[in-house]
Amino acid sequence: MLKGLTITPPVIGRISIGRVVEKNGKRLPEKDDQFTLTSQVQNRDGWVLHPLDETLRKAGQSKLRAIPVRMLFNDPNLNLRAEYTLFDRETGRPVCVGNGETCKRVGNDGVATLPCPSPDGCGFGKAAGCKPYGRLNVVIGDDDELGSFIFRTTSYNSIRTLAARLHYFGAVSGGLLACLPLELKLRGKSTTQSYRSAIYYVDLGVRAGSSLEAAIVEAREIHERRCMAGFDQGALDEAARLGFANGAFEDGEEEQAAVAEEFFPEAGQAVEHSMRRTEAPANATLREKLERQEKALPTLPA
């Protein structure tokens, strides 16, 4: 295993509750009142829809507000990773990532471990826009039992609700979280901060038409079948735990591009244009190409 490279669950698609739209020549994030399942491929119109998006809609949902899912791991903290994160808005790279006690911050001398008082108590984070950032991996469908869809969010409501649900479901099922038949649900609420207009967040519950007791019974049956087949859930959890601990930051270059597109679309577009401008012509010498690449490298704040 390459040291310094975080090993994350294989991702075969994305889950979003928003999209990027172009208004007056600017790319802006726009919230939606439904889920969208996309592939990991983009074209000029945005993210390409995953085939499961159409399949779920044909099942009776004109607006996709519930998605049947299973968890990959029994440990709630492996399914949902959430930290306070400060992004470089020009690249989507994490500059500082913390858990409220300690943080890892990128500086001129590399990555340093520092105290993390949370965004409200941190002058560096509060001034630069540090916010909670969560990533939830779930299994949708039966085609790839170890391939997952990822939901990225900076919503306090989604992160807090998902964290609570995962821990509660894990507790009441006797630690069989990965075997429970669950569904992601989109909920709406109004607050004074939203000026009483509806805002949407993601919740987790037992699938429609079932009960918690029935879901636990099904989870036990699935667990017994897996054990008889030799499926070692504990070893899978431990492998994931070691993989997450193998690097300083979870998001690699490809994930950084997705973060820039989803949360900072104007910056992501600027980076894309900047990269195009710095591309060397085909007849450029090797030295000229290297010089252009060096100038294109972003400078992270200390």
Results as ranks from 00 to 15, higher is better:
G174K: 08
A258Q: 14
T8I: 14
D88T: 13
E288W: 01
T191I: 07
S39A: 11
G110R: 04
A171D: 15
S194D: 10
L176V: 05
G4H: 06
R81Q: 13
K3Y: 09
T153S: 12
F149K: 01
F35A: 03
C103R: 00
V206T: 13
P9S: 14
E261R: 14
G60E: 04
A82K: 00
N246T: 10
S211A: 07
K58P: 01
K126W: 00
L28T: 15
G268Y: 10
I159A: 00
K3V: 05
A260M: 10
E183F: 03
D53C: 06
F264Q: 03
V271Q: 15
R19K: 12
L177M: 08
P94A: 11
L236V: 14
V69K: 01
S274A: 15
W47Q: 06
P94M: 04
L186T: 09
S16D: 13
F149Y: 11
A208H: 07
A127G: 08
L72V: 02
L184G: 04
D33C: 06
L182N: 03
F87E: 00
A128H: 05
C116L: 03
R65V: 12
G141F: 07
P265G: 08
E30Y: 10
R105W: 00
S190H: 08
G60P: 03
T113Y: 00
E254W: 12
Q269K: 12
L114T: 01
A219T: 07
K189L: 11
T299R: 14
G147C: 06
E221S: 11
L49W: 10
R165K: 14
R89D: 05
N77W: 06
G25A: 11
A280W: 11
S211Y: 07
K131F: 10
L162T: 06
I15M: 01
Q233W: 11
R165S: 13
L212F: 05
A127F: 02
F169D: 01
D144R: 10
E213T: 11
V138G: 01
K31E: 15
A178E: 06
T285A: 04
P9H: 10
G18D: 14
G18F: 04
D88E: 13
N157K: 12
R160V: 11
H50N: 06
T154R: 05
L80Y: 05
R207I: 03
Y133G: 01
A296F: 07
C227H: 13
P51W: 07
V271F: 14
I17W: 02
A164Y: 14
P301C: 10
D88N: 15
L286N: 09
L286W: 09
L184A: 04
A302R: 08
G134A: 11
R70V: 02
P76S: 08
H50Y: 05
V139T: 03
D53T: 11
S274L: 15
P281T: 03
E262V: 04
L184H: 04
T285F: 01
V206N: 04
P119K: 00
L162N: 02
S173T: 06
N77H: 12
F169H: 06
K104D: 01
R187N: 13
L78Q: 03
N246I: 04
N79T: 05
S173N: 08
N137L: 07
N24H: 12
Q42C: 09
V259L: 08
D232C: 12
